[in-house]
Amino acid sequence: MFELTLQALYSGLLTGTYYALVALGLALVFGTMKIINLAHGELVLLAAYVAYTAESQWSLNPLAAIPFAMVVVSVVAIAVYLLIDRIKKDRELNSLILTFGIGIILTNFVLLVWSADIRSTTTPWFQQAVVFGDLLFSSRSEILFFLISVALVGATWWWLSQTWYGRATRAVSSDRKAAMLMGVNPRQTEILSFVVASILATVAGIAIFTGQVIEPSLGHALTVKAFIITVLAGMGSIPGVLLGAILIGVVEALTVTYFSSSLQELTGMVLFLVVLLLRPQGLFGFGVRRG
């Protein structure tokens, strides 16, 4: 039993890090625009399918497909931004319905182009096992993307706290008017946050494609999961997002180990509701979102 628990903790840690990439993108856009992009998970999915096409049609290594997928996802994300930008009235709720609609479009686009079949990488290198001390099992893909994800979360944190653009983004999210007075162009930072979110989403998409399996309905599930994580984290806390993502990863893995895989989703949801209702500022944050 101890080995199983240890393995669950380990797997949860590995999955949690790419969850963090997805959630961080959602949180960034929420930070600058105060809207939740319900099509965010579909962007991740899109990147994964671009990698699938690159691999199956052009025999490209999924890693080599990253730049290409980034361009595709960023272009779509900017289109999403431009549509949101056209909403003038009741922005908060209309943007929710708008991005919900975009999510439906993307999911069905994926379904039409790539069919409902489950796909995964055919490059064997990614699937090979990495075993630590005869105890902890994982694949090369999981280890690789664990490292990349941690590095990217760190890079995002550095970008937000150390660079001018990053600080401008934070300024816009805390006080839009004041930021404008300081010479920050909020539109620019909004687009930038969408692009950074797209980059993170792309890497997460490739991680899923090489480490797990992809199917059209995955996008929506990822959006929901990312939202749950940002709620756990408390908006605006990057270490919180990482911790929240790992927490979800671990709790899911433990649920599968001790109960059943059909309950995996339930634990995340229950955790979400408990935190939302009892500690709306998040486990690790200070934000307030009561009406």
Binding site: I35, L96, V231, P280, R289, R290
Partner: peptide, 27 residues
């Protein structure tokens, strides 16, 4: 209890309830 929450949080917590109810109906 979700009524205390602002727009998007309310919308998505109801979604969470829908998932929970479905899983409960299965289990």
């Amino acid at each position: 209890p979700a009524l205390r929450l602002r727009g998007p949080y309310f919308a998505l917590s109801i979604l969470a309830f829908a998932h929970i109810f479905r899983i409960l109906a299965t289990e």
